[in-house]
Design a protein around this nucleic acid. Structure first.
Lengths: 101, 101
DNA sequence: TATCTAATTAGGAAACTGTCTAAATATAGC
DNA sequence: GCTATATTTAGACAGTTTCCTAATTAGATA
């Protein structure tokens, strides 16, 4: 989760995820949405890849990026546990006889 | 949201939130959980306060901190919108019989 | 092979972050 | 006022991050 939260700390990277939320996009298409050089964008893709927040596949000269929803669900779980302590735990024993240290 | 994600990027600050998730705590009690000087801890409290992720109140010499769940719900919403685009939007017309608590 | 386009890697400057020590502020109690 | 405790503020410094330009890699096409 460390790499995930570090990746989400940058507004450009969150915007990249927002764009990828609706559809798969190429590196070039994504770059067009930002006033930043392509190498800088490439750096952000790399950070998102290292955090496993995005997936990619090459198709000819282009690279298509998409969101990896699995990791986002981990973020969701973390925030939910904070909001509802002792709830939302995977494999939790249901109420009667429930013991959570 | 910028300050919020920046605040969540640090593992010490996430751990502080985890500790505060179960109960209100004083600055000193929180500091005992970390191998770090009190001024360093105070800096982290300050970052969390600026992001409005925690609330505080003075009681005598001590300052009690607690989680502000409102902001955490914003984080939750952001992540959910990414997972389910066009769903979970506030003010959305509910499906017939749909109950969202 | 040579050339063009798409994208990344390399290297460096400027700004930001996390941590420390020392000093300051705030409150309680004598 | 003086002292002790709890906490924050100030200033410095190493490490990290973000952005740039220049160079490189990868694939398509003639």
């Amino acid at each position: 989760m460390e790499a995930v939260f570090k990746a989400l700390a940058d507004p450009t990277r969150r915007q990249i995820l927002n764009l990828l939320g609706s559809r798969e996009m190429t590196a070039g298409d994504l770059a067009k949405h930002f006033e930043m050089t392509k190498p800088s964008m490439s750096h952000h893709f790399s950070v998102l890849k290292d955090a496993d927040l995005i997936r990619f596949r090459r198709e000819g000269q282009q690279i298509w990026y998409s969101v990896n929803t699995t990791v986002l669900q981990d973020v969701l779980s973390w925030a939910m546990d904070l909001l509802h302590p002792a709830e939302n735990k995977e494999g939790e024993t249901p109420c009667p006889g429930n013991i959570t240290s």
